[in-house]
Design a binder for these strands. Structure first.
Length: 257
DNA sequence: ATGGTCGTTTGACGA
């Protein structure tokens, strides 16, 4: 089973690239982030024609997350569903696909360390952990994936200096990510690759992709049973090339049956 | 020279 994640930076703008990628890589599950559309404009019928069931949690011009699956969409949940005040942003959707509980997450960017949005980012990550504690156990088959807007360590950014005094690598963010890992998840990409400089996002500006100036912020966090079944984890860098790419490229994991 | 690019959109703002 192949589970992929991709921040598409507008599904309207990216639909051709997404359908092309589905045909080329035939993931069983594809988690999307930043669809930037409302539920009533999500192109579910087009995905059905390609063999995918789907669930979308959108709001309109910003945010929006989805899960596409060829192996079933069971028990979909949008948002945290924890009875506390609803998240104002559409950033989380869950579904069980082929026996794996999958989350498509779009963690808040944070903007800057002195911005209210940074506190929202930290509290959002706290709430994700609380949601896991309340709704899952580490012995479940879990794949919590998406755009975390966190570079887990200094190998995951082209120059660690850009993270000094900035978001994406602050101690508080990395502590939140570590708390998810301590609960019972693994950044499964790092089970298979040690090198620095393997990125999933590159700023559109300044030719950063071609200069290899990026970050690895799109993560697949797997529970132990899923980690044990992992054959490979790949960043599909070619999807960042060519006409009208997203600024993120897909990352996927292949599991043995 | 203190920007650079895309997306939402038609004036800025978010990433």
């Amino acid at each position: 089973m192949r589970i992929a994640t991709w921040n598409v930076n507008s599904l309207n703008a990216r639909m051709e690239r997404v359908t092309e990628w589905l045909e080329l890589f035939a993931p069983d599950v594809l988690c999307l982030q930043e669809t930037k559309m409302a539920d009533d404009t999500f192109p579910a019928a087009e995905f059905t024609e390609l063999g995918y069931e789907s669930v979308h949690h959108g709001q309109g011009q910003w945010n929006g997350v989805a899960i596409l699956s060829k192996v079933g969409i069971e028990d979909p949940v949008s948002g945290f569903g924890d009875g506390i005040e609803e998240d104002p942003d559409a950033r989380l959707v869950w579904a069980t696909c082929g026996g794996v509980r999958v989350a498509s997450c779009y963690v808040p960017n944070g903007r800057s360390l002195d911005d209210d949005h940074y506190q929202y980012k930290l509290s959002w990550l706290d709430r994700l952990l609380a949601h896991l504690q309340a709704n899952a156990t580490p012995s479940d088959d879990l794949c919590v994936t998406g755009d975390f807007n966190i570079a887990p360590d200094d190998r995951d950014v082209w120059d660690p200096k850009v993270l000094v005094g900035a978001t994406h690598g602050s101690a508080a963010e990395r502590e939140r990510l570590q708390a998810l890992i301590d609960w019972g998840l693994v950044d499964v990409f790092r089970e298979h690759h040690d090198e620095a400089g393997l990125f999933s996002w590159w700023d559109y500006r300044g030719g950063n992709f071609h200069k290899r100036l990026g970050m690895r912020i799109d993560l697949l966090l797997t529970s132990d049973s899923v980690t044990q079944k992992t054959e490979r984890v790949l960043i599909e860098r070619n999807a960042r090339k060519g006409k009208d790419p997203s600024d993120h490229t897909p990352v996927f994991v292949d599991l043995t049956p």
